[in-house]
């Protein structure tokens, strides 16, 4: 396979990959153009409209009389700030505990952690909702933010534990000889070394919270607290849909995730691979 005669197979691969990439990306390109189209042009597969309607963006941004997307973006980004912060700090702490420290029942708790990854969220969602409702926390961001401060999700802890296990223990022991406690080792040795993996945690947390439509629908009910996703949903539910404006706003709504993705693309793809395979 890796001998001679494998140049020719490359041409075939290129054709296939290029075709696949185009097929995958065509809806996205079409979307870019459609965001500038009039309703009458919407059904055409052509990408660029005859006359770009830039006001799709301005009108769409202010589609609702009361609140514009400025509010929705502000809300979502503020929530994201806490989510990412919580996930980074607490997943690192928990992963260090599991990855490096010896304590009673460690193996037991770690298998529980792995099991929770398989648990369908539907089983816990009803009692969680009832709990938040009793505490008067429905229609606040707390139910959406709190889980990120409680380990940030089993998936991330697992990812970081795998990463920490790859760090040579000699580093810990050298620091110990220099008088560092387990806390010192975490702060001065492990935390700096797992930064690349923490970038992955941050990106995933950002994108997944952005897309966590289920949670947002459930816990946010007043419009002034709406996220971008909920704002879009309100837009879809309008009597007569202005598709151009709607697609323009949808496009803007994925922009933050796309920027985050391209800013740290290398970590991102490697992060998935690490979790999936190393075991």
């Amino acid at each position: 396979m890796r001998g001679s005669g494998f140049k020719a197979s490359h041409a075939g691969s290129h054709v296939m990959l290029l075709a696949t990439s185009l097929l995958m990306l065509y809806p996205v390109f079409w979307w870019l153009g459609a965001s500038l189209k009039k309703n009458s042009e919407m059904s055409l597969p052509t990408i660029w409209p005859e006359q770009p309607m830039w006001e799709n963006f301005t009108k769409g941004w202010n589609f609702s009389a009361e609140y514009s997307f400025t509010t929705f973006f502000k809300n979502t980004l503020a929530m994201e700030f806490w989510n990412v912060l919580g996930a980074i700090i607490t997943s690192a702490l928990v992963a260090y505990g599991f990855g490096r420290l010896q304590f009673k029942l460690r193996g037991f708790w770690f298998s529980i952690l792995l099991l929770t990854m398989m648990l369908p969220g539907q089983v816990t969602i009803v009692p969680q909702y009832i709990m938040y409702n009793n505490l008067g926390l429905v229609n606040s961001y707390i139910p959406l933010i709190l889980p990120h401060f409680l380990g940030g999700g089993a998936f991330f802890v697992f990812l970081l534990v795998q990463f920490i296990r790859g760090i040579p223990r000699e580093l810990d022991e050298a620091a110990k000889i220099d008088g560092a406690s387990v806390y010192g080792i975490f702060l001065r040795v492990i935390f700096p070394l797992i930064k690349p993996a923490l970038v992955t945690v941050a990106i995933f947390t950002f994108i997944w919270s952005w897309d966590d439509f289920f949670g947002q629908v459930l816990y946010l009910s007043s419009i002034e607290k709406y996220t971008v996703g909920l704002g879009l949903r309100m837009f879809v539910d309008q009597f007569e849909i202005q598709w151009g404006q709607l697609l323009a706003m949808s496009l803007l709504s994925i922009l933050p995730s796309v920027i985050v993705f391209f800013a740290a693309q290398k970590h991102f793809v490697e992060g998935i691979a690490t979790t999936g395979i190393k075991g």
């Binding site: 928990v94 505990g97 420290l101 304590f103 969680q128 709190l146 380990g151 806390y183």
Partner: peptide, 24 residues
């Protein structure tokens, strides 16, 4: 590292009891 270990995994452990086990 019994004490330290549980201290480090405390955030997850609290989350597990509060948001997973009890709801189940």
């Amino acid at each position: 590292h019994n004490a330290a270990g549980y201290l480090f995994i405390a955030p997850w452990l609290i989350g597990f009891f509060l948001l997973t086990l009890w709801p189940i």
